[in-house]
Design a protein around this nucleic acid. Structure first.
Length: 870
RNA sequence: GCGGGCGUGGCGAAAUGGUAGCCGCAAGGGACUUAAAAUCCCUCGGCCGUAAGGCCAUGCCGGUUCGAGUCCGGCCGCCCGCACCA
């Protein structure tokens, strides 16, 4: 064929210009069509897009383009999660202004993203650091405050004494600040909290309605909320050492039924009683200090041995006055959960058992599995936590675990020694950050009036631009003038709150703001009511808990403040996999980037060589998540300039299911690139043979024409179905399958001069462009234009398939003998059971396999299988 | 430790309880070419067999079923999440 190669980079620019000129992807105000809101999690503007972005945004774009073609009114917006630490780090390291740095990054990334050809409505773009956005966020805070959903309390933070800054858990490495290396201190600071626990039950119950979320994510949220029903029990204390005001200790338990198996009381090292005792007990103080040194990291706690300190105090058993329980301070009891105190029942709790064995405490089994002889039942190294009947338990003997729980609760309640209590693991959301680059918390601290919200007319509280990062600590705090204000209530001297919001606050309502991004209110009811919820939300599974839980909380809180009319923001959630790449390193353990090496295959073994210099051999490492530190990244921008966006879009969705990780390989890219060229070639071969644009459908189709039509209609239907299910890899397989059929049809000499084939070929070619359009929109427009159309494919509706062409007249079904496949037969689709049975029994292969045995029965499943049982 | 998921060709993968391996990648052979690239055609799970055909095969062992990659039970291995949560 004489046609030129498809010049993707050049043609892609062309079509992107046309789309932009014609405002093709502007959100329509048309309310007559059903709406569809597709959203991908917005990115942090780091400065460069990476391949993971390409995959994430392409997935959303495929859905958006497909739904548009299906007649939906689509909202597909984009924005920037633009507050956060990296901007401050850049300010410190490169002496740039965080605001300028951020907006420069946004500018650069927007340019890169536009080269991907995403069908976004860019008129709705905003960044969370836009004063307009954080202005509205401050107003939401005031509304939450008024509603009682916000409060201030003292809370522990990781404090870096050198940098004068609060550190996130991940910034504390081996107990030291990641930048300063200073030993991190635990410090109490007054912090702002959102009362997410107010919605704990609702957030939990709501999960049941989210049937289009991955079960995994729902389970993670359920565990995070961690609801448990239990009992608060009071134990009276006695002993010389009992401090004043500590006559009793409150314990939370989910196993009150095991009370007769109790052998000790355990309290957290941070429990008030422990702290009080430590004042006069130096050894205890030392023990508590030791516990603190274990740290808060999961790994450390896991590795730590269970340890306790006997306080010498004893607690009275509530039902058996002769039993006294020693009170231990124990390192495995968390102050944050329940009451920070437990009663230990070693036989039925593994941790208690480990503890009891170490300190030689009594282990008494009080629950035994039904049907087991109590005399035989022994607790060894494993606690028994299953169901069973109570024994050795006075009035509880013979009861089930459930009944015993009730009985204990009732008896204690009568004596005011216990009450039922539901506990949640979920804690209120601390939103204060001692940082500059975030949304200012709009309150003023006045010596006379206390905490005063900034009045609405004074909002927004803007971040000052003239900040200095010369000194350690929060620039807002040591800005010469910014924090000094007069109190809005009394007019006296006052200071601004210098904390800013956790950036998770910014991302907790942006999806709502997109429905009316320029409104003078946080949201515009009519718009929000029309567009919300998001119909399809797409993003990384790393946000499975925090971001998604906070957004669900915000939606409820905003509903209760009158902003929104719903509880659940995201109807369907999809979590996509990461993009991985092989790694390379030299003998000095220096990582090498993919474009610094060349791969050659010698005797079937892949070997890597350094491209520059002496071509020294280098090692091929494992396949890992693309990261700057391992240098195994691919720059989508460079890639797009060379191969085009369509190749990148096609490749990241091919091969692997979208929820799974995909490995970026040069071979895979080549395959995608070859396919774009093949599409172009096929179209150019087809074009001269197409029926004219205005040709009427012929009355009858030749066999090859009919076969092509079947392939086209089946292909189109398959692509539609797979995109609906977000199975993009399978959509791509269906396109390949159709392309193979089209190619075979074009090579078929019998079609020369066949008019009905020309018609079928036009139809098939048009369908072909529709099939690839969601994934390779530029090539699809180019091809559509080649076929003689002067409208944009992006505006064309998805063609209707003829259902009759989706089913074949004949089917091939397998014939089994005793469940083993022996043959296959081609039969009319509607052949009845008797015909199928007869056809199968006629087969020589069946006779041979039956080998003279009597036939017991024949299983016939029309259109599926015949199984002869002999 | 607890919870969840996954184990299928050389690789990524596909398969409403009904012909295991669609599609792609890699590999091998051939055509075209002065040559290469590109493209096109063929082969491609393993074993036995000249062939026809047969046997084995979805991590391992068992079960249910006419029929199991798929359902159930028990192991083994890998991955992910987490909360020592009373």
């Amino acid at each position: 064929m004489a046609q030129e190669r498809y010049n993707a980079p050049e043609r892609e620019k062309h079509w992107q210009r046309i789309w932009e000129e014609q405002q093709t992807f502007l959100t329509s105000a048309d309310r007559s069509r059903p709406k569809y809101y597709v959203l991908e999690m917005f990115p942090y503007p780091s400065g460069r897009i990476h391949v993971g972005h390409v995959r994430n945004y392409t997935m959303g774009d495929v859905v958006a383009r497909y739904k548009r073609a299906r007649g939906f009114n689509v909202l597909h917006p984009f924005g920037w999660d633009a507050f956060g630490l990296p901007a401050e780090n850049a300010a410190i390291q490169k002496n740039v202004n965080p605001r300028e740095w951020t907006y420069d990054n946004i500018e650069a990334m927007r340019t890169q993203l536009k080269r991907i050809g995403l069908s976004l409505d860019w008129t709705r773009e905003f960044a969370t650091c836009d004063p307009d956005y954080y202005h509205q966020q401050q107003r939401i805070f005031q509304a939450f405050h008024k509603k009682g959903l916000v409060y201030r309390k003292k809370s522990k933070v990781n404090w870096d004494p050198v940098d004068h800054t609060v550190l996130a858990n991940e910034q504390v490495i081996d107990g030291r600040g990641w930048r300063s290396g200073a030993l991190v201190e635990q410090k109490e600071l007054a912090q702002w909290f959102f009362k997410i626990t107010h919605y704990a039950d609702d957030l939990l119950d709501g999960l049941d309605t989210l049937d289009k979320w991955p079960d995994k994510v729902r389970l993670m949220q359920r565990n995070w909320i961690g609801k448990s029903q239990g009992l608060l029990m009071r134990f009276n204390l006695s002993g010389e050492k009992v401090p004043a005001d500590f006559g009793s200790v409150q314990v939370f338990t989910t196993r009150p039924d095991t009370i007769f198996g109790a052998s000790f009381i355990g309290i957290s090292p941070e429990h008030p009683l422990a702290k009080e005792l430590a004042k006069t007990d130096a050894k205890l103080a030392e023990f508590i200090e030791d516990c603190r040194r274990i740290g808060t990291a999961q790994e450390d706690i896991d590795r730590a041995e269970k340890k306790g300190y006997d306080t010498g105090i004893v607690a009275a058993h509530p039902f058996r006055s002769t039993t006294k329980l020693p009170v231990y301070v124990a390192n495995f009891i968390l102050m944050d959960y329940g009451t920070g105190a437990i009663f230990g029942c070693p036989a039925h709790d593994q941790r208690d058992l480990d503890f009891a064995r170490k300190y030689k405490l009594k282990v008494k089994a009080v629950v035994i599995p039904e049907g087991t002889d109590p005399a035989e039942f022994k607790v060894g190294d494993e606690a028994y936590t299953g169901p069973g009947l109570l024994q050795n338990s006075s009035f509880l003997n013979g009861l089930t675990v459930e009944a015993a729980k009730e009985e204990v609760a009732e008896r204690l309640a009568k004596r005011s020694m216990g009450e039922k209590k539901t506990s949640f693991r979920l804690r209120d959301w601390g939103v204060s950050r001692q940082r500059y680059w975030g949304c200012p918390i709009p309150v003023i601290h006045c010596e006379k009036c206390g905490v005063v919200p900034v009045p609405d007319e004074d909002l927004p509280v803007r971040l000052p631009d003239d900040v200095s990062f010369d000194k350690p600590g929060n620039p807002l705090d040591h800005h010469p003038t910014w924090k000094h204000v007069t109190c809005p209530t009394c007019g006296g001297k006052a200071t601004r709150e210098t904390d800013t919001f956790d950036t998770f606050v910014d991302s907790s309502w942006y999806f709502a703001r997109f429905t009316a991004p320029h409104a003078a209110e946080p949201v515009e009811s009519a718009e929000a009511d029309y567009w919300l919820p998001v119909d399809q939300y797409i993003g990384g599974v790393e946000h499975a808990i925090l971001h998604l839980l906070y957004a669900r909380f915000f939606t409820r809180a905003m509903r209760d403040c009158g902003y929104l009319g719903l509880a659940e923001p995201f109807n369907a959630l999809f979590t996509q996999g990461m993009v991985l790449h092989e790694t390379y390193f030299d003998d000095k353990q220096n990582w090498l980037a993919p474009d610094e090496v060349t791969i050659e295959t010698e005797n079937g073994v892949r070997k890597a060589f350094r491209l520059e210099g002496a071509r020294e051999p280098v090692s091929i490492g494992s396949i890992e998540k693309m990261s700057k530190s391992k240098k195994n990244t691919i720059d989508p921008d460079l890639f797009t300039q060379h191969y085009g966006a369509d190749v990148a879009r096609w490749f990241v969705l091919s091969d692997s299911p979208p929820e799974r990780d995909v490995v970026w390989t040069e071979e895979g890219v080549q395959g995608a690139w070859r396919f774009t060229q093949r599409v172009w070639r096929l179209l150019n071969e087809a074009e001269p043979r197409l029926a004219p644009l205005d040709a009427k459908a012929p009355a009858t189709f030749s066999a090859p024409a009919q076969a092509l039509r079947r392939a086209a209609h089946k292909g189109l239907a398959a692509v539609a179905e797979e995109i609906e299910g977000l199975r993009f890899n399978r959509a791509i397989a269906a396109v390949y399958e159709f392309a193979n059929a089209l190619q075979a049809a074009l090579q078929d000499k019998a079609t020369a001069g066949d008019e009905s084939f020309g018609f079928a070929l036009r139809e098939a070619s048009v369908f072909f462009m529709h099939m690839i359009n969601p994934i390779m929109p530029h090539l699809a427009e180019e091809g559509y234009s080649l076929l003689g159309y002067n409208t944009l494919l992006a505006n064309e509706p998805w063609p209707e398939v003829e259902r009759s062409l989706l089913v074949d007249d004949t089917v091939t079904i397998a014939v089994q003998v005793n469940g083993k496949r022996r043959d296959e037969i081609v039969v009319p689709r509607n052949a009845d059971r008797a015909d199928l049975e007869a056809a199968a029994l006629r087969l020589e292969s069946v006779t041979r396999a039956v080998d003279g045995r009597p036939i017991k029965k024949v299983i016939v499943v029309p259109e599926r299988i015949v199984n002869v049982v002999a």
